[in-house]
Design a protein around this nucleic acid. Sequence first.
DNA 1: GTCTATAAAAGGATAGAC
DNA 2: GTCTATCCTTTTATAGAC
Lengths: 205, 205
Amino acid sequence: MMEKTTTTVSEEAILTAARNVFIVKGMAAARMQEIADEAGINKAMLHYYFRSKDKLFERVFKEAFKDFWPNLELQLKEATDVKVFLKTVIASYIDLFLEKPFLPNFIISEINNNPERLEVLMRETGVRPLILLSYLEEQIKLGTIQATTARELMVNIISMCIFPFAARPLMSRMIFNNDQEAFNLFLLNRKETIFQTISQLIFVK
Amino acid sequence: MMEKTTTTVSEEAILTAARNVFIVKGMAAARMQEIADEAGINKAMLHYYFRSKDKLFERVFKEAFKDFWPNLELQLKEATDVKVFLKTVIASYIDLFLEKPFLPNFIISEINNNPERLEVLMRETGVRPLILLSYLEEQIKLGTIQATTARELMVNIISMCIFPFAARPLMSRMIFNNDQEAFNLFLLNRKETIFQTISQLIFVK
DNA sequence: GTCTATAAAAGGATAGAC
DNA sequence: GTCTATCCTTTTATAGAC
């Protein structure tokens, strides 16, 4: 029996091109023509496969949104203690953004434009970020980590992981004087440095 | 003698409207019609005063970019020591974003779309963020604060200040379960909590 | 300076041949 | 499935009366 969700070569080419264009330019600035060109295919084909720009965008966006969140359940199950768990979460975030540098700003901007979409997105992708929050709360209660509030801690971790990528050109110019090598090295080391910074805050001797 | 840069009532109304629309929607999604409506004025007037959408946008963007940076020179001159200085910088950032919540994402996104614009912008607005960096470097050398590198520290401070605002709807939903009151309170308290967090990192007993 | 009307361009969507 | 040609809507920009 064949797959229900068989995708043709063209369909895949379109999706790949659409991802590239939408994620870099955003919904409003993206052009169907550019997506067609990048897919090496005719503009009419986009409509043949996806009916409209809106529908094509929704498809790409939902997928990107799903990508945006690490699999907390899995990492939680595999981690032996808080330290390992946090280290894994931070590392998986940094690795993700090293691979997909435009993802953070794309998700953040499109959510800003359409916050009401969040409810549907969360339901359909099954993303549950409160897991990390309640885990941190629990650990604070147990005394294995120290922090005034779990929310504070979680916001700080996420901010440090995501922001340098979301504002990459700005940071590169403003703080690294456009020294690309130094900035790339900085980002590569972030896995380690963020973990150390957070450790200093929550594992008080 | 009269001002050279006299602005008419309409011109001001247009600029105010353009700010509102551009900063919330971004260049690509903004509509000249919407700006005209918000200014309570005819669409043709926009072109009469600013020639094109591009030119109007540039005007608004440059201004917003200038707004985005605290006056470090002034704060440095007025501060009595590192603690006071950092507290002031953080506070002025948080206050700015409480007042203009859409500013961070606007600046970050538009710079991402057009990083090459940065050079001109910096020249024309006279923004010099490296002042903070060299100040931190100096203080590390002097031993008044502790940090592995000044860049690391600066990125962390900026990330914690800006990110929760740039990703406001996302944070609100994901970490505060859309409890608007709790989230607003959290942001209000950020001045204090970020300072405490940073203090814990750099003022080691 | 301000408006109405309209041109001009861009961009998304469809028809129809192959 | 894929293409070319074309339609139609949206949006920017201008002409010209007042």
